[in-house]
């Protein structure tokens, strides 16, 4: 189907999807900023969605209250999980989050109040295009500020070398748990927005494969800059839609693109500083330097710098 045939309403839907997926990926980014490995963010988004959906459906709460409630629940789950897994090996902590999300799936399945296998339904439609993108903008701004805040610096210190961070007087356990919980809260917020658009939340959406998906989005986009998460969440949602063949074909292409790009740019597509060891980035960096030199006519060159 050529692109022009696809209606505006269709793209509206795709872009709203991309918007809240980018928000959940931002949550993943915040949690990963302190060096945690998480596949639980789908479950966090799910927890937020269930909470928010229940609040608006059964208690008649307005959407802002639902978003607040969802984020709060995500934060609480996040801080508990963060403290449980803070002293474990990176992989093991990741597996702890995996176990958590699988447990959440079973809980959502077996509680009749949450709709069981059919999922939570009957939620009012409250999410609009502008709301999603407003929230995305606010969150990007907030997380961009977070990156240069004391907590953000402390988180990155914990990621790069926890022992050195501890020696500098940073409470590693606390910082890691707190950032993990903040990320979980952001993901839960995305979940609240999601359920008020899709109007249903099923237990399947909480499991390992969904969680891995958000991890992939964040790492693919680049887990070192806030734009990386937005880029990853956005591109990898829209990409399968642009590659419109049959469903199987487009995922074949999606997987291939993922593999190729992560091999070419292992730090993700968007990075803070181009990597010295990486051919493609070095090339782009040189190109940029050349352009800059041309823009700033005869611009000052540091000794030893190539044109």
């Amino acid at each position: 189907m050529p692109l022009a045939d696809i209606s505006l309403a269709y793209w509206n839907t795709v872009l709203i999807f991309a918007g809240y997926i980018a928000i959940i990926t931002l949550g993943q980014y915040v949690s990963m900023s302190s060096g945690s490995l998480s596949v639980a963010h789908a479950a966090m988004a799910g927890a937020g969605a269930y909470t928010g959906g229940l609040l608006t459906r059964d208690f008649g709460a307005p959407l802002p209250i639902a978003m607040l409630g969802g984020a709060l629940v995500g934060f609480v789950f996040g801080i508990v999980l963060g403290f449980l897994s803070v002293r474990l090996h990176l992989l093991v902590a990741g597996l702890m989050t995996l176990a958590y999300s699988e447990v959440m799936v079973v809980v959502a399945f077996s509680l009749d109040y949450l709709g069981g296998a059919n999922g939570l339904t009957g939620v009012p439609a409250l999410t609009s295009f502008w709301l999603v993108y407003l929230m995305l903008a606010v969150l990007v701004l907030a997380i961009w500020r977070y990156d240069t805040s004391r907590l953000g610096y402390a988180a990155r210190a914990c990621r790069d070398d926890p022992r050195a961070a501890a020696a500098m007087g940073i409470n590693v356990a606390w910082v890691k748990s707190l950032t993990f919980a903040l990320g979980a809260a952001v993901a839960a917020l995305g979940g609240v927005l999601r359920i008020h658009y899709t109007l249903v939340e099923t237990p399947d959406g909480l499991g390992f494969y969904q969680g891995m998906n958000f991890l992939i989005l964040a790492v693919f986009g680049g887990s070192y800059v806030v734009w990386g998460a937005v880029f990853g969440g956005f591109t990898l949602t829209v990409l399968p839609e642009i590659l419109r063949f049959s469903a199987a074909d487009r995922y074949i292409l999606y997987g291939a693109v993922l593999t190729v790009i992560i091999i070419v740019r292992p730090q993700g597509v968007i990075t803070r500083v181009p990597l010295g060891a990486d051919g493609g980035a070095r090339w782009a960096w040189r190109l940029r330097k050349r352009l800059m030199a041309r823009l700033v006519a005869g611009g000052a060159k540091r000794p030893g710098e190539e044109r």
């Binding site: 991890l215 790492v219 199987a248 074909d249 997987g255 993922l258 190729v260 992560i262 292992p266």
Partner: peptide, 22 residues
């Protein structure tokens, strides 16, 4: 980094699953 191989092979696994489905 271990996540790099994780995603590279994860991409291949998506390709293989959907290839088999195709």
């Amino acid at each position: 980094h271990i996540l790099t191989s994780f995603i590279a092979t994860g991409g291949l696994s998506i390709v293989m699953q959907n290839g088999a489905q195709r």
